[in-house]
């Protein structure tokens, strides 16, 4: 399978990362369901509001009226939590992202979620690299911009629907990463983002299990690993990572073993 990542408009030359072509042509808008020129869907509208400079008000938690947050665990960088110890039958979950831009940012800034489904040898088959041009995994365990139909995706900048029971047994790690669209061209990096939160939600119960402020320690990165959800013995665990690379998506592909030709 040939994957094409299209990021931006500047150069007509596709960049080749081994077999992975990063075509720097016009970005196809995610799943293709959104036709350029059509009215903005609600999620996009919400994103615009959050991109407004912070005027000093305490930011409202967009999730608060959509899901129960009372027992949510606030994770620290590096922390590891067993997802199955507290919630033994947890399978259908949502990962959500929200963020705000610092005062100094006047430009548009877009973040994209990608998930690497890596095996025990830390290798990712191309078909198991889930990103905006390959938004649903073959096994059906990962769906970008979905929410298991529970109707909360409008409340967040980005959502991913995960079904852990459908992840193939040979997949060891789901690495949830975030990249800035056209970071290099626009001179953007993660120093311009504040109040970035990753949340993990039990979809059936509409209950937030944990949140992680991932943007606190970031500066020159343009591609980060927000979290890794991984198998340990018979359970799933989550590790709050929040570290990254200056080299964009290509550096992430290297890190998660998408084969590249030198």
């Amino acid at each position: 399978m040939k994957l094409t990542i299209e990021t931006g408009k500047r150069s007509p030359q596709p960049r080749q990362y081994g077999k992975l072509t990063v075509d720097v042509g016009e970005k196809t808008v995610h799943t293709g369901n959104i036709v350029p020129g059509s009215p903005l869907p609600q999620a996009q509208a919400a994103k615009r509001v959050s991109n407004q400079p912070d005027n000093g008000n305490i930011p409202s938690r967009p999730s608060s009226n959509l899901v129960h947050t009372a027992d949510s665990i606030l994770m620290k960088m590096g922390q590891k939590i067993s997802l199955n110890q507290k919630f033994s039958d947890l399978s259908k979950i949502l990962l959500t992202l929200e963020w705000e831009l610092n005062h100094t940012v006047n430009q548009k800034l877009d973040l994209d979620i990608s998930i690497f489904m890596a095996d025990a040898a830390k290798k990712t088959k191309e078909e198991n690299f889930i990103f905006y041009n390959n938004p649903i995994s073959r096994c059906g365990s990962i769906k970008l911009k979905e929410d298991h139909g529970v109707g909360v995706k409008e409340g967040y900048n980005e959502t991913v629907a995960l079904d852990l029971s459908r992840v193939p047994p040979y997949i060891q790690t789901l690495a949830v990463t975030v990249t800035i669209d056209q970071a290099e061209e626009r001179g953007q990096n993660f120093a311009q983002i504040s109040k970035g939160y990753l949340r993990l939600i039990d979809a059936a119960a509409k209950k937030e299990i944990l949140s992680y402020p991932f943007a606190e320690h970031l500066s020159a990165e343009t591609a980060i690993v927000v979290t890794e959800i991984y198998r340990y013995k018979d359970e799933w665990r989550i590790n709050a990572v929040g570290s990254g690379f200056k080299g964009g998506l290509a550096a992430l592909c290297d890190n998660y073993g998408i084969e590249t030709e030198l």
Binding site: F190, S219, A220, E221, V225, F245, N255
Partner: peptide
């Protein structure tokens, strides 16, 4: 006896 200690750190270049 020789006591050996080892570890790996992840290869992030941003921090």
């Amino acid at each position: 006896v020789l006591v050996g200690l080892g570890w790996d750190t992840k290869k992030y270049d941003g921090g």
